[in-house]
Design a binder for these strands. Sequence first.
DNA 1: CGCGAATGTTAGACTTGTCTAACAACCCGA
DNA 2: TCGGGTTGTTAGACAAGTCTAACATTCGCG
Lengths: 245, 245
Amino acid sequence: MTDGATLPNLTPALEDYLETVLRLVADTGFARVRDIADARQVRPASVSPAMRRLEELGMIRYERREYVALTDAGADAARRVYSRHRVLRRFFGQFLGLPADVAEADACTAEHSLSAATLDRLVQLFEYMEVCPEGRTHLRHFQQCARVNDGASCCTDDCPVVQDLAERKPTMSIADLRPGQSGRVRQIEGQGAIRQRLLDMGLLPDTIIELARVAPAGDPLWIKTQGFELALRRNEASSVLVEVQ
Amino acid sequence: MTDGATLPNLTPALEDYLETVLRLVADTGFARVRDIADARQVRPASVSPAMRRLEELGMIRYERREYVALTDAGADAARRVYSRHRVLRRFFGQFLGLPADVAEADACTAEHSLSAATLDRLVQLFEYMEVCPEGRTHLRHFQQCARVNDGASCCTDDCPVVQDLAERKPTMSIADLRPGQSGRVRQIEGQGAIRQRLLDMGLLPDTIIELARVAPAGDPLWIKTQGFELALRRNEASSVLVEVQ
DNA sequence: CGCGAATGTTAGACTTGTCTAACAACCCGA
DNA sequence: TCGGGTTGTTAGACAAGTCTAACATTCGCG
């Protein structure tokens, strides 16, 4: 729980206010209390005290009822936060291929908590994609193949992924294990609610699981993973592909 | 500022408590107030009210002065948070190659704020690396080449990156631009404090900048980017490689 | 058994960030 | 110049999360 990004005395909320001011000034030329409140989805009454605190911290200059102006320190801090925001938004949007609104929302919250090292490393990822002639190829390949379990959006027939899948180490679903047998999760088949639920339960790639027992009817199965026992419906269990240990 | 991950009525702090309980029970078999306080780096006096709230929310069962036990709902929520933690820690550590302590710390804060879609997509990234025979190659290539500007850790001489760099579109540093000329940032050379400072100022890959003017002495340079003017030292400016627009 | 150490709880305070409601200032148009 | 409407501030409340200090309970050992 280190604060990584947040500089001394700047809470996430204050960082948000600062970033909002920067963006308003860049976009419209000035920042008034009203605009800040609208941008942050907050009542104007909440903005006044925030401006007072930012002024005490030397981040803004503010005469009551006038425009808000960033000091040099404030502009630096605001740009730092906004840089993080942009890196993350691009990572979520362009690299992971998430919808723009999701990318924006996640960037908004993550921008306050990630360490400088992490941000730097994400930038390196972009530099790689920019500069390395193979970078773009790799990214495109990931974006085509990531969804290896989704026939529709994966590679064409001659993609090595598809060709190779048959020849791998024996892979079976949890439902095919014998009680007592262990496996390492390779992938979760399917999409939507079932996949979500399985991921939420901790069935992530590389997780070691053991089939503990199966109900007489064959339907609920119990598995052990991470020091816990979990119950799975049979159809959930068949969606988890494991490599037998 | 959507809450993405957080389910109704579970604040980040409560999610942390829940996750802590899960991990304690998995690791040691039980969770006492004292252990929870130690794990969360918090005073025991802060744990009691948190347990009361979690009990009201139906996430734990707790008799005063006894062990804490998760309800089914609580275990589900805790596992969901912990799944996110694991995905992020692995992404930061294994994919981005950050030190374990940084990966852990960043996972700790980001686990509360990322959307389900983002986490799902990160898992897809791991599935890609697991399942696609090219996935691991790509990752390794990124990890070797990401630091394209750092001679020591980059590819060997026959790496296409290195060979190709000479033949690219004309790339120069900001310091080589003429006033009025624009460019698109391709990469930030160097490491450490200067790189950090430039990234913090918003000089990220793909950012469009324009050299506004240069001081008579040639040293501070002013650039325009993102609707703002920034002053750069000459040595900073020479670290920013741009593709002339 | 009884006492001290460990453990847990309560009370009360404080900070941050938000809200509503009421008030104050300002600006523009008739 | 006056009178709305817009804009901003203040006061007061509240919730969350933390702390310290004081108190309560329980356990284990001599």
